[in-house]
C-alpha cells in the first residue's frame, strides 16, 4: 500500500533508490516503449504493493531521476511495467537501455490513487488523452480483473493520430470482448481510421450514465483537463466522484523539493490523483 513512512529507518535515506532490473522491453509506438521492471531484492519486491494511480521515481544511474506512473495491474506482484515516451534526458537514456540493465526505483509513491473500492458497484468512465492512457491503464486492468464488481465501464481515449495510440492490440481485444464500451478518437485520422475524429472532450456528451452511480477518471495533457471538466459538469457528474491524475515537475518525489506544489498541495505526496472536489478551488491546479 502507500509507502509506510515509519518503514524508513535511520540508515535508509529517502533519496536512495532500490536496485531493479529491466526484464523486458517492448515497442508500443514509434516514440513509446514499455519496460517490465523487477526489483532485485526479494523482500523489497514483495513489499512493493502499489495502488492504481501511484507512481515511482526511476533513476537511470549517472543520468538522473524522473517520476513515472505505473500502467500495469496492481495484482501483478512480481513485477510492474512503465510506459515511457522518449522526451527528456532520463526517458531518452531509458530508451537506450536493454533487457537485463539495472535502474533505481523509489516507490510506490503518492497518497492519492484511483479509489477502486469506492467505484465498485458503480459505473466507471475513464477519459484518457495521449500518454494519459498509461496512468489509467492500472485502474482499467484492475477493473477488468474484477469486472463483476462494477457496473458499466466506458473508456474514452483520444490521440493525435492512430499511430500514437498506446496498447492498440489490447484495446482491439477489449473491443471484441464487449466487457466495456470503448470510444476512440484521433485528431488526425488516416485512411483506415474508423473511430471518431477530434478531441476526447467531444465524446463526453454521449455518456448515458446518471451522476448518482458514476465515477469518472481523467488523465491527459494539462490543456485537456479544463475542457473535460466543463463537459463533465455540464452532465452534472459529482466533483467528489471525478478523479484526475495531475502532472507537475518533480525532483524528489517524496515531498521535499517542493517543485510540484500547487498552493497547499504537493502532487507527489497528496496526489498525483486528486478528486475534482479537492482541487476545484485550488488556484492553478487545472
Amino acid at each position: 500500500m502507500v509507502m509506510d513512512l515509519k518503514e524508513k529507518t535511520k540508515t535508509e535515506s529517502i533519496y536512495v533508490p532500490d536496485i531493479a532490473t529491466i526484464t523486458e522491453i517492448k515497442d508500443l509506438t514509434p516514440t513509446e516503449k514499455q519496460f517490465k521492471i523487477k526489483i532485485d531484492d526479494p523482500v523489497k519486491r514483495k513489499n512493493f504493493n502499489f495502488l492504481p494511480g501511484q507512481f515511482v521515481e526511476l533513476t537511470v544511474f549517472g543520468i538522473g531521476e524522473a517520476p513515472f506512473s505505473i500502467p500495469s495491474s496492481p495484482n501483478n506482484k512480481d513485477y510492474f511495467e512503465l510506459c515511457v515516451r522518449s522526451i527528456g534526458s532520463v526517458s531518452a537514456a531509458l530508451h537506450r537501455m536493454k533487457a537485463g540493465d539495472k535502474v533505481g526505483i523509489k516507490g510506490p509513491l503518492g497518497k492519492g490513487y484511483f479509489p477502486y473500492e469506492k467505484m465498485q458497484g458503480n459505473n466507471v468512465v475513464i477519459v484518457a488523452g495521449g500518454l494519459g492512457m498509461a496512468p489509467v491503464r492500472s485502474i482499467l486492468l484492475q477493473i477488468l480483473e474484477d469486472r463483476k464488481s462494477y457496473k458499466d465501464v466506458t473508456l474514452i481515449y483520444g490521440c493525435v493520430d492512430p499511430q500514437s495510440m498506446l496498447y492498440k492490440d489490447e484495446i482491439k481485444k477489449l473491443q471484441e470482448s464487449k466487457e466495456l464500451d470503448i470510444k476512440l478518437t484521433v485528431d488526425r485520422p488516416d485512411n483506415s481510421w474508423k473511430g471518431a475524429v477530434g478531441v476526447c472532450t467531444n465524446l463526453i456528451p454521449q455518456l448515458k450514465y446518471q451522476p448518482q452511480d458514476t465515477y469518472i477518471i481523467v488523465c491527459g495533457p494539462p490543456v485537456m483537463y479544463k475542457f473535460v471538466i466543463i463537459e463533465l459538469e455540464e452532465k452534472k457528474y459529482k466533483p467528489e466522484n471525478i478523479f484526475l491524475s495531475l502532472e507537475r515537475r518533480m525532483e524528489c518525489g517524496v515531498g521535499k523539493c517542493n517543485h510540484c506544489h500547487i498552493g497547499n498541495k504537493l502532487v507527489c505526496v497528496d496526489g498525483p490523483v486528486f478528486s475534482l472536489w479537492e482541487i476545484k478551488n485550488l488556484k492553478e491546479a487545472i
Partner: peptide, 10 residues
C-alpha cells in the same frame, strides 16, 4: 526557501 533539484552525475 527550501526548493531543490536532484541530479545524478557520473
Amino acid at each position: 526557501c527550501f526548493c531543490f533539484n536532484v541530479r545524478d552525475d557520473i
